[in-house]
């Protein structure tokens, strides 16, 4: 995979990569690609994906009863910048 392509992939998840990082990822993709050859030997036709460790279903649903929310101070406790009791970020340009 090309470096630029990898940088584009990274940008989709909001990561900037150095050239070195992009090259390393390209090498890792290659390594993975080789390892994934084993996938081709495994027939998964008609199989359902196993998403969870078990194929079980639950019936539990939470009752609609409010609990005490976080205090305003707790909500904002770890925020980098606060204005008027809100978390502030530089203007989102439309």
């Amino acid at each position: 995979m090309e470096k630029e392509e990898i940088k584009k992939l990274a940008h989709d998840i909001l990561l900037d990569l150095s050239d070195k990082e992009a090259e390393d990822i390209a090498a890792e993709f290659e390594k993975l690609g080789k390892m994934l050859r084993v996938f081709e030997e495994i027939d998964t036709e008609g199989l359902r994906a196993l998403v969870y460790p078990f194929d079980n279903e639950t019936e539990y649903l939470r009752e609609d009863v409010p609990e005490r929310p976080l205090s305003k101070d707790e909500v904002l406790a770890n925020a980098g910048k606060i204005t008027e009791n809100c978390v502030s970020v530089p203007r989102v340009l439309k």
Binding site: R62, P66, L70, K72, V75, C86
Partner: peptide, 16 residues
């Protein structure tokens, strides 16, 4: 399980 009220003060109806 956080409650919600329209027009509540900012960031007062928030759970973790």
């Amino acid at each position: 399980d956080a409650p919600y009220y329209f027009g509540a003060d900012p960031n007062t109806c928030v759970s973790e």
